[in-house]
């Protein structure tokens, strides 16, 4: 009878203990775990969606080879200084100018754009924050080309216009035009005896510096916005000519 009297309160205490220590925390834990699962599923669905969009973007790239080439000419993946030398020389010759100097300064990395290792970019499943768009920006390598030409004002202007519309990005960092006193001596110069020293900025983006940013809008959008390539094709009319080496091999490198 005494046991019967004690059994009820013991069971009630057991109920309270079970509810407070096991069931309620367990339920909260379950809710947390379900939230984690939802998060994991959302992330998975997102990356699956991005992967399928990336496949479509790749197909779009394959079918727009000419636009890819235009863009790679405008911002190449290598310095290609030989192409610059060749093109500036041929543009100056075509403009009726004589080139008296040309030099290329060493490459400098754009200071405001950090270089990021591609393998560390993005968001791994086991944690870590998404790489910011700023951190995932590509590294731009800039370099200066100095060009000295001699000729008439009209021809210098014509060359500048041609360089401005070159299908490889460049801009004028410095331009000095002065009368060429060395030609005939001071006081005997004409308007056709001018010297122009230009300092031109060129750049390139190395391919391996292009990091993959999982949050980049390109993987969530409908495709590439190619309008800039159309602009390059319509505004930049001076074609960049490629260069071929031609015949090579001589018996004596010190004899022509």
């Amino acid at each position: 009878m005494k046991l019967k009297i004690l059994l009820a309160p013991i069971l009630i205490v057991l109920i309270i203990i079970m509810a407070v220590w096991f069931v309620i925390p367990g339920f909260q834990d379950l809710n947390n775990k379900k939230a984690d699962l939802e998060k994991a599923n959302a992330k998975l669905a997102d990356i699956q969606n991005k992967n399928s969009k990336a496949d479509r973007l790749m197909q779009s790239l394959d079918s727009n080879n000419d636009k890819l080439n235009t863009l790679l000419t405008y911002i190449p993946n290598q310095e290609k200084e030989e192409e610059i030398i060749s093109n500036l020389n041929s543009l100056a010759s075509a403009a009726g100018l004589s080139v008296f100097s040309m030099s290329i300064a060493p490459v400098e990395i754009a200071a405001n754009v950090p270089a990021v290792d591609a393998s560390t970019a993005g968001v791994p499943a086991d944690g870590g924050e998404a790489m910011s768009a700023e951190a995932a920006k590509p590294t731009i390598s800039n370099f200066k080309v100095s060009l000295g030409v001699a000729g008439s004002y009209e021809n210098i202007k014509s060359l500048i216009i041609k360089i401005a519309s070159l299908r490889r990005f460049n801009n004028i960092a410095g331009l000095e035009i002065s009368k060429d006193t060395s030609a005939k001596g001071a006081g005997q110069t004409s308007s056709n005896d001018l010297q122009a020293n230009m300092s031109l900025n060129f750049n390139y983006i190395a391919r391996n510096n292009s990091v993959i940013n999982i949050d980049d809008t390109v993987f969530s959008g409908d495709g590439f916005d190619m309008s800039v390539v159309d602009d390059i094709q319509s505004k930049m009319n001076t074609i960049v000519n490629g260069l071929t080496v031609g015949a090579t091999g001589v018996a004596n490198p010190f004899v022509k």
Partner: peptide, 12 residues
């Protein structure tokens, strides 16, 4: 390649 192309588009 996709990212590289997009980066060039943005910079261009």
């Amino acid at each position: 390649n996709v990212m590289d192309f997009q980066n060039r588009l943005t910079v261009a």
